[in-house]
């Protein structure tokens, strides 16, 4: 399952899933362009890394930033083989009736429009050689969640986006799939726990663990294993797929 010498562009690289993915791909000999909204966090992370890696601060919701990150990747590495559209935010926890227009739009701008901006520019850079595109969706992309409508909707939407892109890009030998993590031990889940149960985070977490068949949260490095599989040529017949990594939650 080799990604050796493949050039990988990843958004949201400074988050835990992003970091675990960068670590795994570098360990496997890939070359990585990392992007994130948070430049200082990227810089700190880059300082810990060995391997052929570069970074750029990017706001994925801006089309011109997406163009810049693709240009920077081509300039540095000469090609683009794998695009991991991983940047996303959880938005505010609360009922649909309390959700403001701005707060819904912010989530959709980053989680959906941001992914579309990436696809739009990446396909041009990948067209001649083929490649693999992986979008981070979520367990919340295949079932409803109360009090988390913007995030849930956005994660459903990227599955639609992925399926359209899989059909459109198949003639260019570009594969497009989503990875759908269940609850993970990450900052995002800490924020969600606090949003649902301020002051009672541990009890909330225990309930969520109990409803996950494996009885635990996943680790970011368990998501990066699926990313590696889908990025590699081993997955050459995999496109248009929703790849759950959820401890059995979707059963």
């Amino acid at each position: 399952m080799s990604v050796k010498d493949k050039v990988v562009l990843i958004t949201g690289a400074a988050g835990e899933v992003g970091r675990a993915t960068v670590n795994r791909f570098l360990a496997e000999g890939a070359k990585v362009m990392m992007t994130d909204l948070n430049e200082s966090s990227l810089q700190d992370f880059a300082g810990t890394l060995k391997g052929d890696v570069a970074y750029l601060a990017v706001d994925v919701s801006k089309l011109e930033d997406n163009q810049k990150m693709v240009d920077a990747t081509l300039e540095r590495f000469g090609q683009l083989d794998v695009f991991i559209a991983n940047a996303g935010i959880e938005g505010k926890i609360g009922p649909i009736s309390d959700c403001s227009l701005d707060s819904f739009r912010l989530v959709m701008d980053i989680n959906v429009i941001g992914v579309w901006c990436g696809l739009k520019v990446v396909v041009e850079a990948m067209k001649d050689r083929g490649g693999s595109i992986i979008i981070t969706s979520s367990g919340a992309g295949v079932m409803g969640t109360a009090n988390m409508m913007p995030y849930n909707t956005s994660k459903h939407a990227v599955i639609g986006l992925m399926r359209c892109a899989a059909k459109e890009f198949a003639p260019f030998n570009i594969r497009v799939n989503t990875v759908n993590p269940g609850p993970l031990d990450t900052r995002m889940m800490r924020s969600i726990e606090t949003g649902y149960a301020p002051g009672a985070e541990t009890a909330f977490q225990n309930t969520l663990k109990q409803t996950t068949p494996m009885g635990r949260y996943g680790r970011p490095d368990e998501i990066s294993g699926m990313m590696l599989f889908l990025a590699s040529d081993d997955a050459s017949y995999c496109t248009g797929g929703v790849y759950m990594v959820d401890g059995g939650n979707a059963c």
């Binding site: 399952m1 992925m162 399926r163 899989a166 059909k167 198949a170 993590p181 269940g182 068949p213 494996m214 996943g218 680790r219 368990e222 998501i223 294993g225 699926m226 590696l228 599989f229 081993d234 997955a235 050459s236 017949y237 995999c238 496109t239 248009g240 797929g241 929703v242 790849y243 759950m244 990594v245 959820d246 401890g247 059995g248 979707a250 059963c251």
Partner: peptide, 30 residues
């Protein structure tokens, strides 16, 4: 291409996967 997916699910790389129906279908079900 199918054997590759079987090996992935049999390996420790997929340690948070259970009950997963892993597609290897060239985009058929998309």
């Amino acid at each position: 291409e199918v054997a590759n997916a079987v090996m992935f699910l049999a390996s420790d790389l997929s340690s948070f996967n259970t009950g997963t129906l892993l597609p290897v279908d060239g985009g058929w079900t998309a």
